[in-house]
């Protein structure tokens, strides 16, 4: 009867680490919730809870405005470890 679950049952890593506040200046820490094209990853893939997903989406948008994280990358710009050469 039950459909097979497409993804593994996830848990919120931010809840586990008891994160209360995220700093937009720490671009490396935002990497977890970003895809390799710097889209914000959906909750169903990362397992973030609603509260932390709201927090991270605000923080990522701030970091984008401050040019710490790109808005988009084109096919030529996609690299494996993007934050290495950001500095």
């Amino acid at each position: 009867m039950a459909e097979k679950r497409k993804y593994k049952k996830r848990y919120c890593k931010y809840c586990e680490a008891k994160v209360d506040f995220m700093d937009y200046k720490d671009a490396g820490a935002l990497r977890f919730s970003l895809s390799e094209r710097y889209k914000i990853m959906p909750r169903r893939l990362t397992g973030n809870c609603k509260r932390h997903q709201d927090m991270i989406s605000i923080v990522i948008k701030r970091a984008r405005a401050a040019a710490l994280v790109p808005y988009t990358v084109t096919r030529k710009q996609v690299v494996v470890a993007p934050f290495e050469n950001l500095k």
């Binding site: 490396g28 934050f83 050469n85």
Partner: peptide, 16 residues
């Protein structure tokens, strides 16, 4: 850039 490349790798690993 050459000096600072090591620091972000450590934070990334910690985040994951």
């Amino acid at each position: 850039p050459a000096v600072e490349t090591e620091a972000p790798a450590a934070t990334e690993a910690a985040a994951e």
